[in-house]
Design a protein around this nucleic acid. Structure first.
Length: 116
DNA sequence: TGTTTGACCACGG
DNA sequence: GCCGTGGCCAAAC
């Protein structure tokens, strides 16, 4: 591991940590905000998020609002339970009123680059 | 070093 | 409105 500067994972994790409680976002929004890589890359990064432990990956869903990553949690229902615990209604492995709960990283403000 | 693989997205048919 | 295809970029093999 010679690379010392923040990896792409770090950026993704940082954004995911900033997702407000009770809100959800999608992979494309994160990738678009970072202006790096692609939505696939975000999913790939989240695949390794278990290595971190404090990343609320359950707040990240695909563009359709489906819990596409539920299979990567301990149990398939864990992701849904976590969301419901935050007040996010989930039904049929899909976030209800996803359009309303959808959140974009740009909501953080222009100071994000500095915070990073 | 080239190929394969992803928790995706947009587009066209 | 569903299905196939291409694009995207970084890690693993």
């Amino acid at each position: 591991m010679t690379t010392v500067h923040p990896t792409y994972y770090e950026l993704v994790y940082a954004v995911v940590r900033r997702i407000p409680r009770g809100r959800v976002t999608n992979y494309g929004a994160i990738a678009d905000f970072l202006a790096l890589g692609s939505a696939r890359m975000v999913g790939w990064a989240l695949n390794n998020c278990h290595h971190i432990g404090d990343v609320p990956a359950h707040r990240v869903v695909n563009r359709k609002g489906e819990l596409s990553g539920r299979n990567h949690f301990g149990t398939p229902v864990m992701m849904q339970q976590l969301l419901e615990n935050e007040g996010v209604a989930v039904q049929n492995d899909r976030v209800v009123a996803f359009d309303q709960l959808s959140w974009h990283p740009q909501e953080l403000g222009d100071d994000w680059d500095i915070l990073c």
